[in-house]
Amino acid sequence: MEMEPLIQIVEDDATIGNFISAVLTANGYKVIRSTGGREAIQMNASYIPDLILLDLGLPDMDGLEVLKNIRTWSKVPVVVVSARGHEREKVEALDLEADDYIVKPFGTPELLARIRTALRHGVRSHDEMSKEAGRVKIAELEIDYEKRSVSLEKQNIHLTPIEYKILALLARHPGKVLTHDYIIKEIWGPYANESRTLRVNMANIRRKIEKNPGEPQYILTEMGVGYRMADR
């Protein structure tokens, strides 16, 4: 099953936020919303969106500070959507590794086109980290990075967004032990303490892909260290 991309809207103006949310939902995207900078950072770490639409004029902190914070630990595509149209602000946002910059007011076709382009950038970035661009197959388990889909013995497996990201991360490093801290940093960020959440998600993943979760074939446990994806 192909998963709908999850987009985080960071916008304190309710009218604009409602408009963008309606447009995205009507075009097949899932949406989460934040109205402040600190809330945006927390939600980004919790939900792991596929793309962020970031306003700069937030009530509690500047949007550029939000971008700086996120870029210390995440390469998630960020499209700035702001009323600040001066070249200086655009250059500063792009220098901080924003993927794109849209000036308000904007048209729906432009917004959707910019989102599609930024999402493609994100897919390519993930593929560059993988040993096999686009797709990996381990025994009867197959992961399609572009479609964000997982199948086992040619049957689609439904994973939550975070379960998918954990499985995809492990599959990019078959045969290599990934420590608990490394996985937590890659999935939730460097400031997270998600050891119990990682164990719960791993148990759920195994329940979905392993014939016998107690004797796993695909995701192996290195006691006290982390997890390792089988390499064949």
Rank of each mutant, 00 (worst) to 15 (best):
Ala171Ser: 12
Arg172Ile: 00
Ala203Ile: 06
Leu169Thr: 14
Pro5Gln: 01
Lys68Ala: 12
Val78Tyr: 09
Ala93Asn: 10
Ala192Cys: 07
Met61Pro: 01
Val31Trp: 06
Glu215Thr: 13
Val103Ile: 15
Ala118Trp: 05
Val103Trp: 01
Asp231Thr: 01
Gly175Ser: 11
Val81Lys: 07
Val80Leu: 08
Val91Thr: 13
Arg124Val: 12
Arg38His: 08
Ala171Glu: 06
Tyr47Met: 15
Val79Met: 12
Glu92Met: 14
Leu198Gly: 13
Ser195Ile: 11
Glu92Ile: 12
Asp60Pro: 00
Lys208Gln: 07
Ser130Lys: 03
Lys185Phe: 00
Tyr218Ser: 03
Thr25Val: 12
Ala230Ser: 10
Tyr191Ala: 12
Leu54Phe: 05
Glu4Ile: 00
Leu24Asn: 06
Ala133Thr: 05
Pro59Asp: 06
Glu186Gln: 15
Met43Glu: 08
Leu170Asp: 11
Asp50Gln: 11
Gly224Lys: 06
Gly107Phe: 13
Tyr164Arg: 14
Leu159His: 09
Ile143Gln: 04
Ile183Cys: 12
Asp127Cys: 14
Glu146Met: 07
Glu89Met: 12
Met3Gln: 14
Leu6Phe: 06
Ala192Phe: 01
Ile205Ala: 10
Met202Arg: 00
Arg84Ser: 10
His121Ala: 06
Asp13Ser: 13
Tyr101Gln: 04
Asn201His: 15
Ile183Trp: 10
Gly36Ile: 00
Lys137His: 09
Lys165Arg: 14
Ala22Met: 08
Thr179Trp: 04
Asp99Lys: 15
Gly224Ser: 02
Leu169Ser: 08
Gln42Asn: 12
Glu39Asp: 15
Val31Thr: 12
Leu112Gln: 09
Leu24Lys: 02
Val123Gln: 12
Thr15Arg: 09
Glu132Thr: 14
Glu222Met: 02
Lys211Ser: 14
Met1His: 04
Val31Ile: 13
Leu54Ser: 01
Val80Gly: 05
Ala133Gln: 09
Ile70His: 11
Asn201Glu: 15
Arg172Leu: 00
Arg120Lys: 15
Leu64Phe: 04
Leu24Asp: 01
Ile41Ala: 08
Ser125Ala: 14
Ile205Lys: 00
Arg199Phe: 04
His126Asp: 14
His121Gly: 09
Asp144Cys: 05
Asp99Ala: 10
Arg135Gln: 08
Met1Trp: 01
Val81Ala: 00
Pro5Asp: 11
Val136Leu: 10
Lys165Val: 00
Ala98Leu: 11
Ser46Thr: 10
Arg120Pro: 01
Ile16Pro: 00
Pro213His: 08
Pro5Arg: 01
Tyr145Asn: 04
Lys176Leu: 10
His158Ile: 11
Val150Tyr: 03
Gly17Asp: 00
Glu4Cys: 01
Leu119Trp: 03
Glu140Met: 11
Gln42Trp: 08
Pro109Met: 07
Ile16Ala: 05
Tyr191Ile: 05
Val150Met: 06
Leu94Trp: 07
Tyr182Asp: 03
Asp181Val: 07
Ser34Gln: 02
Ala118Asn: 01
Gln217Ala: 09
Glu194Met: 15
Ile9Asn: 03
Asn18Leu: 07
Val150Cys: 12
Arg114His: 14
Leu169Trp: 07
Ala93Val: 07
Thr179Gln: 06
Leu169Ile: 07
Glu11Gly: 06
Asp60Asn: 08
